[in-house]
Design a protein around this nucleic acid. Sequence first.
DNA 1: CGTGCGTTTGACTCTTGTCAACTGCGGTGG
DNA 2: CCACCGCAGTTGACAAGAGTCAAACGCACG
Lengths: 237, 237
Amino acid sequence: MRAEDTEKLKCLNFFRGVKENTFRRAIAPSFLQSFPAGTILLEENRPADFLYIVLDGLVEMSSSAAGDETVIEILGPVNLFILAAVLNNDICLQSARTLTPARILMIPANLIRELLSEDHDFMKAVVFELASAYRRTIKELKNQKLRSGTERLANWLLREERGQGGEGRLTIPYEKRILAAYLGMTAENLSRGFSALSAHGVQIKGLQVDIVDIGKLSDYARSSPLIDDGEPPLPRN
Amino acid sequence: MRAEDTEKLKCLNFFRGVKENTFRRAIAPSFLQSFPAGTILLEENRPADFLYIVLDGLVEMSSSAAGDETVIEILGPVNLFILAAVLNNDICLQSARTLTPARILMIPANLIRELLSEDHDFMKAVVFELASAYRRTIKELKNQKLRSGTERLANWLLREERGQGGEGRLTIPYEKRILAAYLGMTAENLSRGFSALSAHGVQIKGLQVDIVDIGKLSDYARSSPLIDDGEPPLPRN
DNA sequence: CGTGCGTTTGACTCTTGTCAACTGCGGTGG
DNA sequence: CCACCGCAGTTGACAAGAGTCAAACGCACG
């Protein structure tokens, strides 16, 4: 593991304020692996044997039922996943797949549970990590229940624009079909959504999106701190 | 506070295994209040000054944006709410309103945060409470994104039937308009959903629902442990 | 017995999903 | 070097699901 990686890890809420010893014990027996794009890291309905931390690349969390599939979340560095399943020693509710080449740290689940009991500060960090993950998910639920597909797209664009420097343009960091699944719509509808937003200050060319009139788009999107925002925007890949 | 109430509280995961002293310190300065039906306990976007625990009655957690309103969750005894906002010392993402007369324990938020640092076992209990709340919410998100309104209704009926004794019938514990909002549909569509389910073994008369052919309904509902279930069914009011 | 409100029903509209054909770009191989 | 292929994305026509509006129903309450 590189020094730069340990730096990254210590930026996580998850490791905020934990004892140096706990940190080292967590890292020591863990695997740092590089995966090509498209690798399935884990499948829903399987036991959670590791806690995963994304150091580089993008990971898609998805779920399927009755033939349909949806994307729950897309994680960039530095984020962790299936923490709740690890703590409950339960099965995963989501599948994970790399969207780009990715470097991922895998910490054995039972080690996490051990350290939890031993280091009070670590447990505290876990509490805050879980609490914010919970709030993020509640927001996403509201996003789905209270807005139309095109509205979700508009708000996603605004968030992404901010995360990519706030200069009025952004690059969609993965295939549009995946963005569509994440937003809870079909690829066809996403395409129509972009057409509809051209009347609200959005121009698109391939994966390149220009927000020519951010005020107009904001008016349409009606963002709310009770639904959007809340977490730091996804860093660029 | 009655002895029966302290018994109830100790059944919560939230208080599982905590020191007797912590428990008493949490209860001592807290308010146990009775509210009539329809009382607004808190509104979204307000700071979370108390942790709420439902001892009797039903509480609706809802949220609105741009004139639309949706129901996120409906809680019976013994459940707690806005734990995540209390821990993060942040604003509420949901409003809370009693659906029936209710008895509710209110614990000051700063007291919760204090006890968290002092009692390791209490923190552990909080971790598990948060982890399961998180998983519940992920399941609800999947429920919304992967199923149609009528499918959500079918699965809700199956869960509710189990929670009410598993004898093939159930009583809807609140107004249908509220059930509709919880399921993410309009009251009109809920009504049509019930009509549609009459072809799948469901008969309804007012708030009384008879599941005459549970096999048929299950076939239609296609329940999955990765979406449904997971938590104990809502106790009867 | 009348009133009020939640619910139901019907007709209609709008949104979203589905299916199929077409476009355009990138990569392969002749 | 260029033709061809594959596949993501787009577009159009259609179907299905869900929301809207208005009227009628029915149960509870005064």
